[in-house]
Write a protein that binds this DNA or RNA. Structure first.
Length: 468
DNA sequence: TGAAATGTTGGGGCG
DNA sequence: ACGCCCCAACATTTC
């Protein structure tokens, strides 16, 4: 019997996987395939932290497939040729996959589909990584949305997803022995040095862990609205990397959260899932989102070229504790609390005047949840050059933000041990502490900018955008 | 999903 | 008792 190839991409799960379910329903033997693609033109090659996650997620997916009588075939290369080649090799009946929405992925998949159909091989794609397809949600005029709130109201207020699909309990596997590469040979995990210790402590990639994480979050859902902005509180879901790799689907999350009693927390959290949808909507209709400001006024913005300050930002040595704590959390664990991402990003763009794309690139390389749509849309939001963007005058003050959201400095002390003994009163502005208190924190840097002066410079630069 | 500057109000000290 | 000033505390405006 001719097999169906189920091509796994950003959907590394068995449950609620429409492509896999369709392959099962077809009745043909199934070949589960993953392709490590660093070659497709325009691709955003996965960064270091993402590659670490991918390694473990693939391991987990392979294990899960084996438990139900299947296996995961690993190949490397330009995906179009690899998939086509394997389909030829197997005499495949069809290839199925769940859609991805990065511009290069859309182009690649379009070419692949045409190539397969031209060879008489079936090709079908499914929606499973988003709640709604980007083109499903439109304004009354039929145009894409530019602003989140109307997008959310139009697309999701009176809307319920269909229930998630169950995971297959046994896989009708292709009998032929199919050559697979060795995951270890892909060198996705770091060595010399192995910097992944903090990631291993913080995370457990894979579909079972994603479900575990979701149920843990549901148990503390009621705290979400009140504590989501406190980085020390661990009140957020921490589902972002699981979602990015598709170890859990947004439909599973939606279903689980909306089965809880209605609450402001549930509503707030679902709207955050909505921001993820909105980012993909924006990327779909604005393929330049990752590399060009949506607002053309920003084309000639006078960004700073101060490499030294940028490096200090990346390493968490700016002298502003809440910023440095966040950047060190990112470096150590591959993740940063959402509130601190906003503070740190605003600091880079507005206080240091550095191009948002430098920040986006750093995040891309260091985040385990690095996602082209979310990352690009969020940085454009912070920089004020997106469509639904933070107004230019919204400049976070890292001292005030720290005092507001980390009032006792618990988060800062966790990631900036130099400030362990600094009293709460000075924890977010240690340079103002009496000298005897600063002695214990001697290795902590002085602030690299004067907040008031930098703020004035930023306002001037942004104001000049709209001036004639 | 701001912050700072500016304006307003009202209680209390004081002559 | 009264007017005056000071200045938190809060509200509004501006960037």
């Amino acid at each position: 019997m001719r097999p169906v190839i189920c091509w796994f991409r950003q959907d590394l799960r068995l449950a609620d996987n429409p492509a896999l379910a369709a392959a099962q329903a077809d009745g043909s033997p199934i070949v589960a395939l993953f392709v490590l693609d660093d070659e497709t033109p325009g691709i955003w090659r996965a960064g270091g932290a993402s590659r670490w996650w991918l390694h473990h997620s693939l391991q987990s997916l392979g294990d899960s497939l084996e438990e139900i009588g299947g296996s995961l075939v690993l190949r490397r290369g330009r995906a179009e040729s690899v998939v086509c080649g394997l389909a030829d090799e197997m005499g495949a009946k069809a290839v199925v996959w769940n859609r991805a929405y990065e511009p290069y992925a859309i182009e690649r998949d379009k070419r692949l589909k045409a190539a397969l159909l031209a060879r008489g091989i079936g090709a079908e794609s499914f929606g499973g990584s988003l709640l709604r397809e980007p083109w499903e949600v439109r304004t009354a005029a039929g145009t894409p949305f530019k602003v989140f709130t109307p997008y959310w109201r139009a697309g999701f207020a009176q809307w319920q997803p269909s229930p998630p699909l169950p995971a297959p309990t046994s896989l009708r596997s292709a009998l032929a022995d199919i050559e697979s590469e060795n995951l270890a040979d892909w060198n996705l995990t770091p060595s010399n040095p192995d910097w992944s210790g903090g990631l291993r402590t913080a995370w457990h990639p894979g579909e079972p862990s994603a479900q575990f994480q979701l149920s843990g979050f549901l148990a503390r859902l009621s705290e979400y609205a009140g504590s989501r902005d406190a980085p020390a509180a661990a009140a957020t879901s921490r589902l972002s990397p699981h979602l990015h790799f598709g170890e859990i689907s947004p439909r599973q999350i939606w279903h689980a959260v909306s089965s809880q009693p209605p609450s402001s927390s549930a509503e707030k959290f679902l709207s955050e899932i909505g921001w993820r949808e909105f980012s993909h909507h924006l990327l779909f209709y604005n393929p330049q989102l990752p590399h060009a400001p949506l607002d053309p006024k920003f084309a000639a913005f006078p960004w700073s070229s101060d490499a030294e300050k940028f490096v200090r930002w990346t390493r968490g040595r700016t002298g502003f504790p809440i910023v440095d704590a966040g950047m060190r959390e990112l470096w150590a664990t591959g993740w940063m609390h959402n509130r601190v991402r906003m503070i740190g990003a605003s600091f880079l763009v507005k206080q240091l005047g550095v191009d948002w794309r430098r920040g986006a690139e750093w995040f891309w390389d260091t985040l385990v949840d690095a996602d082209l749509a979310n990352n690009s849309a969020s940085w454009q939001w912070v920089a004020g050059c997106g469509t639904d963007a933070a107004p230019f005058f919204r400049i976070f003050n890292p001292v005030l933000q720290g005092e507001k959201f980390d009032p006792h400095g618990a988060y800062v002390r966790r990631w900036v041990p130099e400030l362990q003994l600094m009293p709460d009163e000075f924890i977010h502005k240690p340079w103002t502490a009496p000298s005897e208190l600063r002695k214990g924190a001697k290795s902590y840097p002085e602030p690299i900018v004067d907040l008031a002066a930098a703020r004035a410079r930023a306002l001037e630069a942004y104001r000049s955008l709209s001036a004639p």
